[in-house]
Amino acid sequence: MAVQRITSNEAQASKNVSHDHFFLWREFVWGAVAGAFGEGVMHPVDTIKTRLQSQAILNGLQNQKNILQMVQHVWQVDGLKGFYRGAIPGITGSLATGATYFGVIESTKKWIEDSHPRLRGHWANFIAGAVGDTLGSFVYVPCEVMKQRMQVQGTITSWSSVPVKNGIAINPGTQMYDYYTGMIHAGCSIWKTQGVKGLYAGYLSTLARDVPFAGLMVMFYEALKDVTKYVEQKGISSPNWRVNHSFEGLVLGGLAGGLSAYLTTPLDVVKTRLQVQGSTLRYSGWLDAICSIWATEGMKGIFRGSIPRITWYIPASALTFMAVEFLRDHFNERVSNDNLRDVRRLSVDKKSLQEVS
């Protein structure tokens, strides 16, 4: 009976430890909430970025607008509603991406470090971020396609007056694709006219952008955290002073997101153009798109929209990491050190009992 009682206590203590360290559903929830929060707040900036990158397809290469001109145009033509077109599919996609991103990162990183010690550190962070984002792409990409098409459309009045299609004048009132009244209508319309291929337009280009972006962002974030810890140890005299995790997530997340966003802007330009070009293809694929943009628009075209992209990702990443760190600190249940000691003690007792028997 003594052995049975100890075994029961050990199981309970082990359960508590597992609850603390491997209860991954909370990471999925915190990631989803944080991702949706960041997307919702920064969606108007993303709308401007999407319109800047896609205007060559919708209006031809001539007279392309800069950032201020595009902001004025959206406000004058579509009003406040124009800045929030596509917000629902955008938030839906961010829910899925944030959940898989943060939910998978820690477990993947631990597995990599345990099974492949040589990949510890920056490589483990990069791979974990890339894996998390890849898994989320199955939900994120269709939402991204719907979001971006709704963003470039603006209001039904402005979309009906688009005078150019692939650089060729068209009759007023005709569009590259139907006007979407909402997310469900957009999804059904794309499915009906283009099938799965339409919903996953630019999928490989999205992975080509998001996998390195996600990997770089986690790698930069963890590297910056290491630098912060080093500075705390070397430069702070007071042992009671420490950086608040939420504030750390805000600052370091913003820096990591902004740097990663700039480095992957060319990939974002290609992805956006492939996703908004409609049924009449302007580009035959990723390679054709990058070569065509470079030949006709040069470096400026390759990095078009980089400023609003960085402007979006710095606060969006900052808010996302801040929210995750805040939720982790305030809602994750903690297992006391006594329980951890109990597990070690019970493990030893079990070994001793086995030797006696």
Score class of each variant (00 low, 15 high):
residue 9 N to W: 06
residue 15 K to W: 12
residue 15 K to Q: 13
residue 15 K to F: 11
residue 15 K to A: 15
residue 18 S to D: 13
residue 18 S to H: 12
residue 19 H to A: 14
residue 20 D to V: 07
residue 20 D to N: 04
residue 21 H to Y: 10
residue 23 F to S: 14
residue 24 L to M: 15
residue 25 W to R: 03
residue 27 E to W: 11
residue 32 A to M: 09
residue 33 V to W: 04
residue 37 F to E: 01
residue 38 G to V: 05
residue 40 G to A: 15
residue 42 M to F: 12
residue 46 D to L: 14
residue 46 D to N: 15
residue 46 D to P: 00
residue 47 T to M: 00
residue 51 R to E: 13
residue 52 L to T: 06
residue 52 L to S: 07
residue 55 Q to V: 03
residue 56 A to C: 08
residue 58 L to Y: 13
residue 64 Q to M: 15
residue 65 K to S: 11
residue 70 M to L: 06
residue 72 Q to M: 08
residue 72 Q to H: 12
residue 75 W to L: 00
residue 79 G to F: 00
residue 82 G to E: 00
residue 83 F to H: 02
residue 83 F to Q: 01
residue 87 A to F: 01
residue 87 A to I: 06
residue 89 P to C: 04
residue 89 P to A: 09
residue 90 G to I: 01
residue 94 S to W: 01
residue 98 G to P: 04
residue 99 A to E: 03
residue 107 S to E: 09
residue 107 S to W: 11
residue 107 S to M: 11
residue 108 T to F: 10
residue 111 W to N: 11
residue 113 E to C: 01
residue 117 P to I: 06
residue 120 R to V: 11
residue 121 G to A: 08
residue 122 H to Y: 07
residue 123 W to Q: 09
residue 127 I to L: 14
residue 131 V to E: 04
residue 132 G to F: 01
residue 133 D to K: 05
residue 133 D to V: 13
residue 135 L to M: 14
residue 135 L to Q: 03
residue 136 G to M: 08
residue 138 F to M: 15
residue 144 E to F: 10
residue 145 V to Q: 02
residue 151 Q to E: 06
residue 152 V to N: 02
residue 158 S to E: 03
residue 169 A to G: 01
residue 169 A to F: 03
residue 176 M to L: 13
residue 179 Y to K: 05
residue 182 G to E: 08
residue 182 G to D: 15
residue 182 G to K: 01
residue 182 G to R: 02
residue 185 H to Q: 13
residue 186 A to Q: 03
residue 187 G to H: 06
residue 190 I to P: 03
residue 191 W to G: 07
residue 199 L to I: 06
residue 203 Y to I: 04
residue 204 L to P: 02
residue 204 L to F: 14
residue 205 S to D: 08
residue 207 L to E: 01
residue 207 L to C: 10
residue 208 A to N: 03
residue 213 F to R: 10
residue 219 M to R: 11
residue 220 F to L: 08
residue 222 E to I: 02
residue 223 A to G: 12
residue 225 K to G: 14
residue 230 Y to F: 15
residue 230 Y to W: 15
residue 232 E to I: 01
residue 233 Q to E: 14
residue 235 G to W: 05
residue 236 I to F: 12
residue 242 R to E: 12
residue 244 N to S: 10
residue 245 H to I: 11
residue 245 H to E: 15
residue 246 S to E: 12
residue 249 G to P: 04
residue 251 V to R: 05
residue 251 V to H: 07
residue 254 G to F: 03
residue 254 G to L: 10
residue 255 L to D: 02
residue 256 A to V: 05
residue 256 A to P: 04
residue 260 S to Y: 05
residue 261 A to F: 05
residue 261 A to T: 02
residue 266 P to G: 07
residue 272 T to L: 05
residue 276 V to R: 02
residue 276 V to L: 06
residue 277 Q to W: 06
residue 282 R to Y: 10
residue 286 W to L: 09
residue 290 I to K: 06
residue 291 C to D: 14
residue 291 C to G: 02
residue 292 S to K: 13
residue 302 I to A: 11
residue 302 I to T: 11
residue 304 R to F: 04
residue 306 S to F: 12
residue 307 I to R: 01
residue 307 I to G: 06
residue 312 W to R: 06
residue 312 W to M: 11
residue 312 W to H: 15
residue 319 L to D: 09
residue 319 L to K: 01
residue 320 T to A: 10
residue 323 A to N: 04
residue 324 V to C: 01
residue 330 H to F: 10
residue 331 F to E: 09
residue 336 S to D: 14
residue 336 S to I: 04
residue 338 D to E: 14
residue 339 N to G: 07
residue 341 R to M: 08
residue 348 V to L: 14
residue 353 L to Q: 09
residue 357 S to Y: 08
